[in-house]
């Protein structure tokens, strides 16, 4: 909330280095370092195991470019879908404060379920809904001749299913933190609800939306279980990076390490650049 006179003061980082130093008790350093090590060391082990001497040769395999392109494209599409539908859902959740508490909590629980559901089960659920014999899928097939499983669209759907909750929860948090009185102020200036949403609410929660989109994209990029179950696995159509890494592990571990490395590097690059650009765009 840059420069907001009414925003929570807690959102502002302390300006002076002294204040920042005294803000971290020594007792937190040890667990913090351990946590970081726990998160980073497995990746270090992976990087160490990569057959660096054969790297160029293994990287040149056309499957890598194909599945990387598919992964980036489908994760981007899943993020776009999540933004399109997830922001309105987050808005409804954030504005449900006056609802019946049971209804409100149920709604939130339902949104959170894909986070805790094993992705493979999520994939089966998607098949049961959208498969050609599925609850809805049978009509898609009978009326429109649309069969979703084993298509790139199915990859995007599976990724959206598991990744959208991250965006919804992040955006909902941002909405709750935003000063609603600014919307009142906009209303008294004659703005319609839609105008207010676009020109006031959305810009105010932009940092939250950006953070949610980043999480969502990252989750979509790493998606495996729901994709393999709902979309299947076929090079160039549904075989994303994680699928190709998993399969390579069965027959050619070196190739699997290289694929994992590429996935790792791409994820880090995307996350770092996206975050910096978006956040700096808001705080500058």
């Amino acid at each position: 909330m840059r420069g907001s006179r009414t925003g929570s003061p807690g959102l502002r980082a302390p300006r002076s280095p002294d204040a920042r130093r005294s803000g971290i008790p020594a007792a937190l350093w040890a667990p913090a370092v351990l946590a970081l090590a726990f998160l980073v060391l497995p990746l270090v082990a992976l990087v160490v195991r990569v057959p660096w001497s054969r790297l160029p040769e293994l990287l040149a395999a056309p499957e890598i470019a194909t599945s990387l392109g598919l992964s980036l494209g489908s994760a981007a599409a899943a993020t776009a879908l999540s933004l399109l539908f997830g922001i309105p859902l987050a808005w409804v959740l954030a504005r449900s404060a006056h609802w019946n508490p049971v209804a409100r909590r149920s709604l939130r629980a339902l949104v959170t379920v894909p986070l805790v559901l094993p992705p493979v089960v999520g994939g089966v659920a998607l098949l049961l809904l959208l498969g050609r014999r599925g609850l809805l899928g049978q009509y898609l097939d009978a009326w429109f001749g649309i069969q979703l499983p084993f298509t790139t669209a199915a990859v995007v759907i599976a990724q959206t299913f598991v990744a959208m909750p991250f965006l919804v929860l992040a955006v909902e948090g941002a909405l709750r933190g935003a000063d609603r009185r600014l919307e009142d102020a906009a209303a008294t200036l004659g703005a319609s609800d839609w105008f207010i949403f676009r020109r006031v609410t959305l810009p105010l929660i932009a940092p939250g939306v950006a953070a949610g989109a980043v999480l969502c994209f990252a989750r979509a990029l790493g998606e495996f279980g729901a994709t393999i179950t709902f979309a299947g696995n076929f090079p160039g159509v549904t075989q994303t990076m994680p699928l190709s890494a998993y399969l390579a592990l069965q027959s050619n571990p070196d190739a699997a390490y290289v694929i994992s490395l590429v996935l790792l590097v791409v994820s880090v690059l995307v996350l770092v650049s996206l975050r910096d650009r978006w956040v700096s765009g808001v705080t500058a």
């Binding site: 499983p149 084993f150 179950t229 299947g232 696995n233 076929f234 549904t238 069965q250």
Partner: peptide, 14 residues
């Protein structure tokens, strides 16, 4: 094939 399943059980499930 439309899909190359990672194991035989997954193929059977479909």
């Amino acid at each position: 094939p439309d899909t190359l399943e990672t194991d035989v059980r997954a193929a059977l499930t479909k």
